[in-house]
């Protein structure tokens, strides 16, 4: 168990492509940190630098206070779970789990004890003598987890471990991984491009964009106070609505309505979460005329897609809410997110 400290970390690939720059991150002992971001933003690169699979070209990584820049992956006291499981196809599940321990010259009795313990925790006891080929995707995933936990490492590193599973299994497995991690208390870094996975699993989210950290915070904090339009749109489903507005003389003009606004005058981007939009009387203060385009039925709620002053806007309503073609929607001024023209949040 250990904290991971990352300072000014950067990676430039041999071809000259800079994948990651200027990453500063403190991961506390026992914390579950999720790296999230769109494809190609450098999540895997960052994780692989922590693992030692990718050479660090700038900055330092410390695991448990020890600088590991020059250490081999095996010497860093980490375990990794790969996207495609990376189980040894010619070894049985038991051999897969014990291989890393054997290479560390652990006593045979201790290896057996740890493997049996891991098999019990992960409920893979009856597969111990099978080859990975004879296992389902979910079972392989468990074996891959098992290979990580038998090592009892200082940290777990996950690179999109659930992306090959079907949607339902993914939900079960993410709960299981989280429960297991809480129980073992092992520091974990988890990479995903799925914002829902990130929201549900993380103690802390790290949103990456173009090789840089865009925002770090608890899932709720990031959801409620996105620092930029990028984060606002990336985190949360459906994505946050972004509408052009103008602040002028202390009022915000938006979609034909006026809100008591603050801050500097000028054009702004206004973010509104789907669930913050409510139905209003057309003549009420802050009511925006909205034409219904389509409705998506989710069962637990209804999503209405509207046209407000030429912008497509989504709003979430309780199930059974009646929606008409011509309506008015409003939002509480406290729930408005204001961003400047470059996309940065304007402090309220």
């Amino acid at each position: 168990m250990a904290a991971i400290t990352i300072e000014n970390l950067g990676k430039t690939y041999a071809g000259g492509a800079t994948a990651v720059t200027g990453i500063d991150l403190d991961i506390r002992d026992g914390e579950f940190v999720v790296l999230v971001g769109p494809s190609g933003c450098g999540k895997s690169t960052l994780l692989r630098m922590i693992a030692g699979l990718e050479e660090i070209t700038e900055g330092t990584v410390r695991i448990g206070g020890r600088e590991v820049n020059r250490l081999e992956p095996a010497e860093r006291d980490i375990a990794m779970v790969f996207q495609n499981y990376a189980l040894y196809p010619h070894m049985t599940v038991r051999q897969n789990l014990s291989y890393g321990l054997k290479n560390r010259r652990m006593a045979r009795a201790e290896i057996t004890r740890r493997v049996d313990e891991a098999a019990r925790i992960l409920e893979i006891g009856q597969y111990l003598d099978r080859r990975p080929r004879a296992l389902s995707g979910g079972q392989r995933q468990r074996v891959a987890m098992g290979r990580a936990i038998v090592r009892e490492p200082a940290a777990f590193l996950f690179d999109e471990p659930l992306s090959n599973l079907d949607a339902k299994l993914r939900v079960t497995m993410r709960g299981e991984i989280r429960a297991l991690q809480r129980r073992l208390g092992t520091t974990s870094v988890y990479v995903t491009h799925d914002q829902l996975e990130a929201m549900t699993m993380a103690d802390r989210l790290v949103v990456l964009r173009g090789g840089r950290i865009e925002q770090v915070g608890t899932p709720l904090d990031v959801y409620r106070n996105p620092v930029s339009t990028f984060v606002a749109q990336f985190i949360g489903s459906p994505s946050m609505n972004l509408l052009p507005g103008v602040i002028d003389g202390g009022t915000l003009r938006l979609g034909g309505a006026r809100f008591a606004g603050t801050g500097a005058a000028g054009p702004v981007t206004v973010g509104i979460r789907a669930e913050d939009l409510t139905i209003a009387r057309p003549d009420a203060e802050g009511a925006m005329a909205a034409q219904l385009l389509t409705v998506e039925e989710l069962g637990s709620q209804r999503l209405g897609y509207f046209d407000i002053a030429g912008e497509r806007v989504v709003a979430a309503f309780p199930a059974g809410q009646v929606l008409r073609t011509d309506m008015a929607l409003t939002v509480s001024p406290a729930r408005l997110h204001l961003f400047d023209t470059s996309g940065c949040r304007i402090a309220a």
């Binding site: 699979l53 081999e72 095996a74 375990a79 990794m80 790969f82 990376a86 291989y99 890393g100």
Partner: peptide, 10 residues
């Protein structure tokens, strides 16, 4: 990934 897993496995 197999080679990387082996590297991590020492």
């Amino acid at each position: 990934e197999l080679m990387e897993a082996a590297r991590i496995d020492g």
